[in-house]
Design a protein around this nucleic acid. Sequence first.
DNA 1: TCTGGGGTCCTAGGACCC
DNA 2: TCTGGGGTCCTAGGACCC
Length: 424
Amino acid sequence: MIAMVDCNSFYASCEQVFRPDLWGKPVVVLSNNDGCIIAANKEAKQLTHIPMFEAVFKIKHILIENKVTFFSSNYTLYGEMSQRVMHILETFSPSVEVYSIDEAFLDVHGFTYVDLRAYGTDIKERIYRYTGLPVGVGIAPTKVLAKLANRMSKKLPEYNHVCVLDTDAKRLAALEWADIGDIWGIGSKHRKRLQAIGVFKAIDFVKLPLAWVRKEMTIVGERIWKELQGTPCIEFMEIPNPKKAIGTAKSFGQKLPDLGRIEEACAYYITEVAEVLRAQKSCATYIHVALYTNYHSTIDKQYSNRTTITLPIPTHDTFTLITHARKALHQIYKSGYRYKKVAVNLTGLIPQSHVQGNLFEKPTKTTDTKLMQTLDVLNRKFGKTTVSSAMIGTRVKEWELVKKERSPRYTTQWRELLAIGVMG
DNA sequence: TCTGGGGTCCTAGGACCC
DNA sequence: TCTGGGGTCCTAGGACCC
């Protein structure tokens, strides 16, 4: 059996933990640049005219009319709250797969003498008591079914956020209940195609011939089909695989026509991704750089382009990566446009211990990590970009993200700790 | 004026190898 | 008339996840 634990409206809940005055009131969290809504709590979701991912400027009046509190995203806070939840989960099972910032699978096979419903309730209550975050728990024989159980735990009040599918009768009842689009791995495209042939419920889906599913939905669909029947096909991954690509593609806070400014942003993004690359002890073989104008705009001229550079020797050296990224940027930049986004991506990631040199250069030259190690230590201790390449510039970062309504980083900054007022 | 970001996996097709 | 067979690697595009 597998348990699936998922935090309710995670980002919004994190904000509410530190704001008791907002308990029971509608709260939403905005994307980078405060562009659209990416999370909403139960109360905000009940206001049906707040669609997810809608542009904020279009519905700001609705938010204000309904007294919805909105926050810029505060990933420092959410990341740290997530770690607290994951640490608690590790006390419940020797084997935990952290699936995303707010979800984890727990391996509970062999828990023969454990009452799984009581176990799930214990998880839910302990997390709430220790962190203030509400979660749902679904327990079932496969991951896809555990995901479904988790959904039922939240949607059907009688479960009270803990649902166990431990018999075939319960499994079939769950398949009768679930809409096809509710199934993990079936997105909007497949949902529409399935509905077109009369498949509306999960139970209809498992009645389809496997050959059809395989042909129309590839092996991905086949796995979902089998998992819904109770046959595990999706591996439990306690130790995450190393990343195959590390990239960043953030929109600028404002549109930038000037190559110099874009170079600074590009160097900054490379600095960020190179740090992640080194943390994983990998080196990159390829750098992809892409440049975009604002495709939503009807008044700006549109242009976008991308290019890939193959490094002579794979590296994780920030300075080498910046040099090549800059070359790539120069290849695709055209003047006369107002740019909105630059994207950098590192791929062809290999372990740093496996870097091959070429005829003219030894690999040690590009993976001599002492300088980079020192840089990482300093920046970790004294703050991001305490020491960095001059390419990121010293001017005001015009490209920086807009975050007008960010809450304090309550759990990671001494100066932003929650202050409790004393009456009288 | 203003519209997110970071990933994964799978398949088909092209280029190439022997 | 009629043109092999077995394989790898890479990329683009599609679909999905949170």
